[in-house]
């Protein structure tokens, strides 16, 4: 038995060694760096490979903040040719670090269409905003808050759940939303009063939504999520439902539009295939598919909306910050937030 075990171990390790030294088949390969939420139907990607005559090699690099930092660290020897997932909050940082190569053939941005800027071609967008548990509010009889200010009042004590801006992308964007909507001083003042009023901080979106949100067994009926989340709730419901169990609240200072785009990586190869990939991400097929695979709104105007997306409303207005301001002040804001809310 022991001999069998050891020979098994030896054979497997030999097999693995051969795996190590096996030459890497480098056919025409387009390396695409994406964030962890990237997801498109397989047939679509296969279709692109056939048309462009390249093999797609998709590399997942963490959430969007982590992704950009990995890109910056490896700029001397880029790990991919094209990147998807740089958003309007980070584009100035990417620009400053000189990791993006402007895509020349992008057509001028149409009026009303969202843009990322700085050579990044917009693919999709969504809004980070407060979601609420309809059943919990109906049960307590509490009216839905109409302003962020109301949330600091005693009747809304211990109801709000946010993600840590230092470890979570929606949490980070929500902090930016408060600064954009209320102004820096008033925003941090609001956070200080929210701390006193029992705001809860979770590590990331999944932890917040699945362990603390009242819809899933927690105690908090208000959570930072996306404008598209109610549509996903309907799409992934157990029984067929006609109304989402959650709703979205667009409060002044509580909405931020996140526009994600695709860009060429400076120093990456395969320029022709990379350009085709950028066009592919803007093609009607991808623009339609991404709505229910990544739960984002399509950036290309005139794209047909998926049926379930009627449960996802867009806000009439929202505030934004310039990417340059974010790049300059972001780290300070996050550490100031940490001191104010967590310490």
């Amino acid at each position: 038995m022991k001999q069998r075990l050891l020979s098994l171990v030896l054979t497997t390790s030999c097999a693995m060694l051969s795996w190590f030294v096996a030459p890497y088949a480098l056919a025409e390969e387009l390396r695409v760096l994406v964030h962890n939420s990237f997801s498109l139907p397989k047939p679509l990607l296969a279709q692109f490979e056939a048309q462009a005559g390249v093999k797609l090699s998709v590399i997942k690099g963490g959430d969007s903040g982590e992704l950009l930092n990995k890109l910056i660290l490896t700029r001397a020897q880029p790990i991919a040719d094209v990147v998807f997932g740089i958003d309007n909050a980070q584009v100035a940082k990417a620009q400053a670090a000189n990791v993006i190569e402007a895509y020349a053939s992008a057509p001028p941005v149409r009026a009303g269409a969202p843009a990322v800027g700085n050579g990044v071609v917009a693919v999709d967008y969504s809004f980070v905003a407060l979601n609420y548990d309809k059943a919990a509010f109906a049960k307590s009889g509490l009216p839905l808050p109409k302003t962020l200010e109301e949330l600091t009042q005693p009747q809304y004590r211990d109801l709000l759940l946010v993600q840590n801006p230092a470890t979570s992308s929606p949490g980070h964007v929500f902090l930016l939303a408060t600064i954009a909507g209320l102004g820096e001083t008033a925003a941090f003042d609001w956070w200080a009063r929210m701390r006193a009023n029992g705001v809860k901080v979770a590590k990331g979106w999944s932890e917040a939504y699945y362990t603390e949100f009242s819809k899933n067994g927690g105690t908090r009926p208000l959570v930072v999520s996306y404008a598209t989340s109610p549509a996903a709730e309907v799409f992934y419901s157990k029984e067929k439902i006609t109304e989402s169990p959650t709703g979205v609240l667009f409060l002044k200072g509580g909405v931020f539009r996140q526009v994600e785009g695709v860009a060429l990586i400076k120093g990456g190869g395969q320029h022709e295939a990379a350009a085709r990939f950028i066009e592919f991400m803007r093609s009607p097929a991808v623009q339609e598919a991404l709505q229910t695979s990544m739960w984002m709104f399509p950036a290309e105007p005139g794209t047909a909306r998926a049926e379930v997306m009627r449960h996802a409303v867009e806000p009439a207005s929202f505030d934004s910050l310039s990417s340059e301001t974010i790049a300059e002040k972001d780290a300070d804001w996050v550490s100031r937030w940490t001191k104010m809310v967590l310490k």
């Binding site: 998709v58 590399i59 997942k60 790990i79 899933n216 109610p230 799409f235 992934y236 157990k238 739960w295």
Partner: peptide, 26 residues
């Protein structure tokens, strides 16, 4: 760094818990 084709059971579980909806949790 990871690749979609390297999906393990653990990453699949996390992928499901990264989207809203009762069916994902179940």
């Amino acid at each position: 760094l990871s690749r979609p084709e390297w999906m393990t059971l653990t990453t699949l579980i996390y992928q499901r818990l990264g989207r809203p909806g009762a069916a994902n949790l179940d």
